[in-house]
Structure formats: structure tokens, C-alpha cells
Design a protein around this nucleic acid. Structure first.
Lengths: 161, 161
DNA sequence: CCTCATTATTTTAGAGCTAAATAAAAAGTG
DNA sequence: CACTTTTTATTTAGCTCTAAAATAATGAGG
């Protein structure tokens, strides 16, 4: 084996190791942040991250969203959305409505109470996220955002969507 | 309000929005990757991500790890580690051993079968991760790794450890 | 009409995960 | 040494999530 070949092999191996290290670090950061958010949502508002997430999606879509749309946006199964929606409906924060265009569909909307409860939480939540990322400068956040955008396109682009 | 103040305020608001967008994109990328890995682990090896994660930790520490050490490294509760270890022990992949230095502790180690099963999976798993990140160049991965490192230090450094 | 494939939601079974309570051993303190 | 606090692992109750099966409505073709 020549020196050039050895170098190429080494560089490839390092690149492989690099991807693994990168992935583990990314996973760690995400876990740290979700853990903090989960704990604070519980302590401050006695609610959970998926409940908050569902309300956030509805708040961005006052016209309501179907269960399938919610499951796509929240990246969970429709069965999971059903369970979370059940709880929020029991708490009076969301309402199931019939879709006039398709009787198979259910459209979920925020109730006035749900809007009020969510907007109180959203302000505080935004502050937490700002705090978590304030270790990075605006330029660094911009770079990170762009790199993750490229990663996301690659992940969505090829197989197993 | 003067023009300067308005600009400052606008810039701050944009910075806030930036943190939220960044966080949501980061969460999306992580969810996409974990979803792919989970599905492939199930299809190819009939196992799950937390099981794989526990085996991976033990593989890096042939001397064994205590339940508490595992829970820290896996970023889950010790109760959760107990349950996953129960399953892996029933499958004969790990073994509980008494810690001679501390009778409260349990040291978990890979069995020979566990080593064999894991190393077969690890090779394939590494290939998946390389594939997920090959949309980025070596330099881009390096930049992403560094930025996440800075983020991680900030997250660990301040309140709520 | 009537079937057949598709789409939308719910239900079910089981693993994952947390927080809190428990039990046992170790470590610190007067 | 006795007493208290801390540490370590397990257990328990309850929510979260998935995959797969069950319901039910839509739509296309014959």
C-alpha cells in the first residue's frame, strides 16, 4: 500500500468518525434543550411538550388543522395526535369540528380559552429558547441555521421520507 | 421613538425569532434522523434505539458500567436504564455483576453474545449516520460540530444542569 | 349500484420515559 | 459508635409514542 492510499484511507476513516461524533453531539444538544423545556413546562404550567407543540401548531393556523396535518407537522403518528387531542379537548383548550368537505376528517381548532392559555405560555417559552441559544452570536446562529437547512434538505431529499 | 431605537428593537425581535426558527429546525433534523435510525434498527435487527444505545455505551467500556453511569451517559433516568437492562439481560446480551467496592451498585457488562450482536449492528449503523450527513462537506461538518460544541458548553454551563 | 383501492381517524398492544416513592448500603457527623 | 444524610438501584403510576389493526368515508371503474 502506498503512502497516498494510506492517507486517503485515514482521511476517510476520520470522516466517518466525524459523522458519528457530530451526530452524537447534535443528539446531546437536542436532548439537553428538550429536557430543560419539558421540566420548565411542567413546573411553570403543569403541561407537557407535546401538548404545547399541538397548541403551537393550531395557533399558527386559526382556520384549524386536520389530525393528519397535525401528525405531519408534529412528526408523530396520527394515533398519538388522537390521544393528545383527547386530553386538550377534555381540558377545553381545543375543539373537534366536522370538516364540511370531507366527512372522514376532523378539524381541530383552538378554543378562546386555548388561545389565552397558549399565548401566556408562548411568551415565556420564547424567552427560554432565546436563553438556550444566547451562547452563540447572531452570525453563528445564522451559520448553524444554514447548515441545518442543508442537512434537512439532504435528509428529506433521498430515500425513506 | 427615534429611528435608531426602532432599528435596535427590530434587530432584537429578529434575533428572538431567529432563535426559535433555529431551535425548530434543529429539532426537525434530529427527529428525522432518529426516526430513520429507529425504523432501520427495527427492520434490520429487530431492536430499538435505546437498546442499541445501551449496548454502545457498554462496548466503549469493557470494564462495565454502573446503572447510574449508564443513565448519565444515555441522558435518561436510572429507572429507565433498569427496564432496558432487564430486557437485554433476558436476551442474554448483558450481564449484571456485583460491584465488590459498593454493594449497592450493579455493574453491567456485555456478554460475548452481546459483543458479537452489537459489533454486527454498529458497522451498519455507522454507515447510516455517514449517509445522513454526507450532504455536508468535511469542512461544513467541522463547522457544525464546533458550533454545537459551543452550544453544548453554554447549555451545561449555566443554570438547571 | 358495486367493488376495490385509498384516505382519515381511532383503537390497541407494547415499549419508552419520567417523577416520585421505596429499600438498602455507604458516608458523614457529633 | 449511634444517628443522619446521601447515594444507588428498583418499583410504581402515568403519560408518550410507535406500529399495526380496526372503522369508516371517499372516489374511481366497471
Amino acid at each position: 500500500m502506498t503512502t497516498l492510499e494510506k492517507d486517503l484511507e485515514t482521511r476517510l476513516a476520520e470522516d466517518h468518525h466525524q459523522a458519528i461524533k457530530l451526530w452524537l453531539r447534535m443528539l446531546t444538544c437536542t436532548n439537553l434543550i428538550t429536557g430543560k423545556i419539558r421540566g420548565r413546562l411542567r413546573e411553570n404550567f403543569a403541561t407537557t411538550l407535546p401538548r404545547f407543540d399541538l397548541l403551537a401548531q393550531l395557533e399558527r393556523h386559526p382556520e384549524g388543522l386536520r389530525m393528519g396535518e397535525l401528525s405531519q407537522r408534529m412528526m408523530v403518528t396520527t394515533g398519538n395526535v388522537t390521544g393528545i387531542a383527547d386530553q386538550l379537548e377534555a381540558e377545553g383548550l381545543v375543539r373537534r369540528e366536522a370538516d364540511p368537505k370531507d366527512r372522514r376528517s376532523v378539524v381541530l381548532r383552538l378554543t378562546p380559552k386555548g388561545q389565552a392559555v397558549f399565548s401566556a405560555m408562548a411568551k415565556v417559552h420564547e424567552g427560554w429558547v432565546i436563553e438556550f441559544f444566547e451562547g452563540l452570536s447572531t452570525e453563528e446562529k445564522e451559520t448553524l441555521y444554514a447548515l441545518l437547512g442543508k442537512l434537512k434538505r439532504h435528509l428529506n431529499g433521498r430515500r425513506s421520507p
